[in-house]
Design a protein around this nucleic acid. Structure first.
Length: 262
DNA sequence: ATGCCTATTATTAATAGA
């Protein structure tokens, strides 16, 4: 079972690229962020023709999240984050797919920091940490996947000293991520590649991709009930190299079908 | 310290992204 997260940066503008990647990569479940499309403009027919059922939480201009399932329809369990500070922003959707609860999130960027946008980020993050704890209490297989807009450690940013005052790397935000993981989640990419440089985002500016000036901000967190099934985890960097591409690359894991032996 | 580039929306400029 392959589960991917992809900040597509405009689901309609990137539709040909998205369909190409779906056909090549064949993920079973996909969490999309930054649809940048209102609810009625989601390309449901094209996604369906590609073999995927979908649920989505759209918003005009900004944000927007979706969950796709190959040959299946995700069973929606939550839309919007409980206790979120601004329900007008579409940043969370959740579904049950093939026995796994999938939470798809787009955490606020938060720049400039300090300021109201940063306060909003911290408030959203706090609500998310509380909600994540309630998911762990259920002792079920859960995957929280999306654009967390945080580099967890210095290993996750090409030039850490340049980012210390940025909303994606400030201590408050890193602390929030560490508090989240400390609840019992497994950071899938990092658990399999403990000392490697792995990036999931490269700025459009400054020829960042060619220089590999990247950030690791797209994450998949596994609950203890599913973490033993983790087989592989990687980033489809080749997608970031294409024309008309998102500034993020698809990030994915594979899981064994059965519960791992104790 | 800032712009760089790219998207959407609404009208060629503003806003957001990270």
């Amino acid at each position: 079972m392959k589960i991917a997260t992809y900040n597509v940066n405009g689901v309609n503008g990137r539709l040909p690229l998205l369909l190409e990647w779906l056909a090549e990569s064949q993920p079973d479940v996909v969490c999309l962020q930054e649809l940048k499309a209102p609810q009625e403009k989601f390309p449901e027919a094209a996604i369906s023709d590609a073999g995927y059922g979908a649920i989505w939480h759209g918003q005009k201009s900004w944000n927007g999240v979706a969950i796709l399932a190959r040959g299946d329809t995700p069973t929606e369990t939550q839309r919007g984050l409980p206790g979120e500070p601004d329900s007008a922003q579409s940043r969370y959707i959740e579904a049950s797919v093939r026995g796994v609860l999938i939470g798809c999130l787009y955490l606020p960027n938060g720049n400039p920091a300090p300021g109201p946008r940063f306060d909003y980020k911290l408030a959203w993050f706090d609500a998310f940490v509380r909600y994540a704890a309630s998911l762990l209490d259920r002792k079920i297989p859960v995957i929280l996947a999306g654009d967390f807009n945080v580099m967890p450690t210095e290993l996750d940013v090409y030039k850490p000293e340049r980012w210390v005052d940025d909303a994606l790397f400030r201590p408050e935000v890193r602390d929030a991520f560490h508090r989240l993981v400390a609840q019992g989640w497994t950071d899938a990419l990092r658990s399999l590649h403990q000392s490697e440089t792995i990036y999931t985002f490269w700025d459009y500016f400054r020829n960042a991709f060619a220089r590999n000036a990247g950030l690791r901000i797209d994450h998949l967190l596994l609950s203890p009930a599913i973490a033993p099934r983790l087989l592989a985890a990687d980033v489809d960097r080749d997608v970031r190299a294409k024309e008309k591409t998102s500034d993020h690359a698809p990030t994915w894991i594979t899981l064994s079908q059965e519960e791992a032996a104790a």
